[in-house]
Design a protein around this nucleic acid. Structure first.
Lengths: 259, 259
DNA sequence: CGTCTGGTTGATACGACTCAAATTTGGTGG
DNA sequence: CCACCAAATTTGAGTCGTATCAACCAGACG
């Protein structure tokens, strides 16, 4: 079986090589490395939109790798409040080695229909043993993922609604761009205003009003599952976006934050 | 040089074995494992209270291990706002493998005077090569750290000021207890109300008022750098504290959340 | 004993929430 | 192609939690 090339459901962007793109944001891969990565796509699973891939309390058995679609990690409080704590885009791995833990402390749900590879502990062991460059890249991925989590903490703790939403949109755009799913300020954008609220700690009503402000200020167009960032430099500026936490400055690639 | 046993500055609790305690929360160690851990204490550094151990923009060269004292990871916004994104207690490692990254995207500062071990990439490589049990424990530590980061995201996004502070106090108490620095609801507590504000995304004034509420409700005593949780079960309950994210249920240890 | 840091109090302002309803969009089947 | 329905978005009015600003106080320290 070769690297999956599934056709995205509502996109003109190809995500067939998202995994490679993601890893190559950090390092160049050899043919063998690519081979090893492709081999991870053996055990594929599909999850329908708005269904869970894995739920809080479950025993994690695999490392997951998103081949296509968007997912969300979320936690639920006894009083019913939900917080999306992170978003998964094509090419994203869930935590390496999760299977060490006895049970999941959160759930992972599908925003769109999801195509994920399930990687066994054995496969992970083999990979880290045989392919040091890929292993280093996975480490980089892991460090970036936790850096994003920290930035979200900052986002929720210190930014206003306006800044928070602007920041999130820029982050998602840049992340999509590194896997070839965005360009020219445009990308598919399947999150509802309710999702945005759960990710930013705002009510859907307030998300709505704040998005209108961002539109009114000529920063974005957002609707019909599509985002257009009209002036990314200004959006970065008003949301105090500093791309350093994405650690994209490796191997001289992705140095240009524009376009 | 043996495992450091430094005497804490204002504590009756010993933190000499915090590192072992932390690791043994996950797994039992062999004599060789202990030896290997102790050997990490070769390169020790002290950082005065309120000074930085490492700053945003620096090139990370070492993995840090907190031997004594409290530290904080924080991020600063261009408008001057600060957010503490995580706290380091004795026995905590900073991110394994950080030195892969080109530069720090945040700073680490000392709350109290800090005693830290600086672990070189070589040492890390040797450790993970020679001591698989320790390596697994470090992985567990890494996964727990990011789980805590997610819980903070939830905390900031969905809990009220009252719940947020209560939750943070319970978390810190439990974390201190697993390294032998807390018992009977009591622990040293060097955070100022300003620190608490920066960790919870609240203003110091509101922290002050909210702490008064927690006191008034008979949940805590807090002052003179000392915390006493009077009714931990009730505090857990009102702050919707679910200890699952600390993943302490290994090897049958630390099952009892009381005392 | 004065200085400084951290803690406390009061008055006022505002950002975000709540609740409720209307409107638009997208998908489905007749 | 249109009628229908559910989901998502939008609007309005009123409230509340937390921020802001400005003092004041207490204990630690030199």
């Amino acid at each position: 079986m070769t690297l999956p090339t599934g056709v995205p459901e509502f996109s003109k962007f190809s995500s067939g090589s998202a995994v490679e793109s993601r890893i190559e944001a950090f390092t160049r891969l050899s043919a063998d490395d690519r081979q090893a990565l492709a081999a991870l796509g053996q055990n594929v699973r599909y999850v329908d939109s708005r269904r869970d891939l894995i739920s809080e309390g479950d025993k994690p058995k695999y490392v997951h790798l998103v081949l296509d679609g968007w997912g969300a990690r979320y936690k639920t409080l006894p009083d019913g409040k939900r917080q999306i704590v992170s978003l998964f885009l094509p090419g994203d791995f869930c935590d390496l080695n999760v299977y060490i833990l006895k049970q999941m402390d959160h759930s992972i749900g599908a925003i769109t229909r999801l195509k994920v590879a399930m990687i066994t502990p054995d496969e992970m062991t083999r990979l880290t043993h045989d392919r040091p460059r890929v292993t280093q890249a996975l480490w980089w991925h892991e460090l970036v993922t936790t850096a994003i989590q920290r930035e979200w903490t900052l986002n929720l703790g210190q930014r206003t609604a306006y800044e928070r939403l602007g920041h999130l949109l820029v982050e998602l755009y840049l992340r999509l761009r590194t896997v070839g799913l965005a360009s020219n300020g445009r990308c598919d954008f399947p999150l509802t205003q309710n999702d945005l609220g759960e990710a930013t700690g705002l009510t859907p009503v307030h998300v709505n009003r704040t998005l209108q402000e961002l539109r009114r200020d000529g920063l974005i167009e957002l609707g019909r599952r599509h985002l257009h960032i009209q002036d990314i430099e200004r959006l970065k500026s008003v949301s105090m976006f500093n791309p350093n936490y994405l650690h994209l400055e490796h191997e001289g690639r992705h140095l240009d934050a524009n376009s």
